[in-house]
Simulated scan of single mutants.
Amino acid sequence: MSDDAPKSTLPYPPVHKDKKFVVLSDWDGTITTYDSNDYMTDNLGYGKDKRRQGNKDILSGKLTFRDAFREMLESVSANGHSFEECKQILKDNIKLDPGFRDFFKYCKAQDIPVIIVSSGMEPLIRAVISNLIGDDAKDIEIISNHVDIHADGTWSIKYRHPSSGYGHDKSQAILPYRQLDDPPLLFFFGDGVSDMSAAKHADVLFVKEKENGENDLAAYCTNEGIKHVLFDDFSTALPAVRSIVEGTKTAEDWFSAGRA
């Protein structure tokens, strides 16, 4: 970490040294088909319309992600939904990207670490991913925020980087790899406003395109001139990653193509 990096309230796992490739991925709406925090907010909190306005305000600079996201989650807790109730609701409703299981199997076979870098809360992510992929979930590291459960039963997000406008500045999970003498090639997968801080630091950025039109990360990358590759799901991303790992194509080939 650099001296000006935001102080983390939670420990980081060791950096994977001596790896040729590392995959880092957002969780909600990227590895899953629906963002679990959006699901809670839309169905248990203050609703979709206010949530979408919050995302637009983040993109325009009117709100920080940290503050808008906290308000989203507070609306769920304020409506009387306990953390354990939310955990079960998400286990019942959140689905895995249809191509992720095969993608993860390929990465394991190639000795490529897969790390979830999320603005969500680790207990929810761990519960849902264990429900979706079983024992394989233990092989996936999670770098995320946490949760504070209060004496009255309400709960609130515990940010990894409370001094950062992102709450969890995802770039801080990437930058330590840049300090290695022989850094790996870094793939990053994301979809939304929480991924903006990480977007420019990946070697190969994959941006998930959404049928519902909530393509906030794609809009940000286009506006900022950040090279990226659009993908529909991990079944389309896998051939692109495989071609780079196996040397049949380069990242620039895929940036030129624009889509996996």
Results as ranks from 00 to 15, higher is better:
C221S: 09
I244Y: 01
V204S: 05
F21C: 13
P11T: 10
A78E: 12
A109I: 02
S118V: 12
G54T: 05
G213T: 10
V229N: 04
G61E: 03
P98G: 09
E74I: 01
C107Y: 12
N37A: 15
Q179E: 12
L186F: 07
I125T: 09
K210H: 14
I112P: 10
N145Q: 06
Y166F: 15
I116Q: 03
Q88T: 13
S197H: 13
D42A: 14
K249C: 01
K200I: 07
K210D: 02
G225I: 02
D28N: 15
P184K: 11
D18L: 02
D169C: 13
V114R: 07
E246I: 05
E252Y: 07
R101W: 08
I115W: 01
S25Y: 02
D92K: 06
Q179W: 03
A127I: 07
A109S: 15
W155L: 09
Y12V: 01
W254H: 10
I157A: 12
K20T: 09
T9M: 13
S164M: 01
I157N: 08
A257G: 00
S25I: 00
N37E: 15
C86S: 14
Y166C: 13
S82T: 15
M40G: 15
G258Y: 02
L124G: 12
K170F: 01
E141P: 02
A109Y: 02
